[in-house]
Amino acid sequence: MADIVLDNCFYSYSNSLEEKVLSGVSLRVEAGSFISVIGPNGSGKSTLAKLLNGLYIPSSGIVEVDGLSTREKKNIPQIRRKVALLFQNPDNQIVGDTVEDDTAFGPENLGLDRDEITKRVEDSLSKVGLLEKRKMSPNTLSGGEKARLGIAGVLALNPEVLVLDEATAMLDPEGRKEVMAILQDLWKYQGKTIILITHHPEETIYGERIVVLDKGEIKLDGSVAEVYRKSETLKKLGLELPPYVELSLLLKEKGVIDDIAFDSSSLCPLLESKI
């Protein structure tokens, strides 16, 4: 299983060292975990995502997947098989004319034989609930369905890690729900590692750990509860909080409760003790 390790990673687009997009990021992602990455616009989240499968190579520092450094060119195909990346606009990731052709694109690139490709296409499409639409053109799908097709496309590569780079940002609430349900399933029951880059705070609640980026540095890194107990820092960064956390903060200000709650079963006992 693939652990991902980032050690003191720096990244800048130009050679000028002043404009660092990432400066000194160290992170260890254990296999089978669900990590959300949040941060203001321009904090380097997207760059971080692209370091993970070798699309970008850090200016200095090391990124290793399962002990394979992204710096070695010969490792890249192997790394990309393990770490799949999904982007913001599903339309820009679809290469096939039909749902099934698009899903077959990855396996074709691996040079697999026909039967294996068929198996993988059917498997992946049924995992995201698109099997009955296999013959349809991607242009006829809804936003949520296109995003699910994107997921099927990378699942066909049998990856161990899925990195979603704001992949829910352009979706309507329905579409976001569809995608989150699939991620939950992949994480809990298929043993995939999920790295979710998002600016929808309520999505982070699904995971177990949150990494907060600001100006290319990791500001906070901890369990969901740990990070949201430090909500003041998040507020200062202009980040939105999940509704229960926001409510807890308001109640804390008013002196009603003195802890952060994440759902009704953690909030209500706090309230009942006061009534």
Binding site: K50, N53, L55, P77, R80, R81, A84, L85, F87, N92, Q93, V95, F105, G106, N109, L110, G153, V154, L157
Partner: peptide, 9 residues
């Protein structure tokens, strides 16, 4: 698109 195609090997 180019990044996505690269990612899909």
């Amino acid at each position: 698109l180019a990044l996505a195609m690269d990612s899909r090997l």
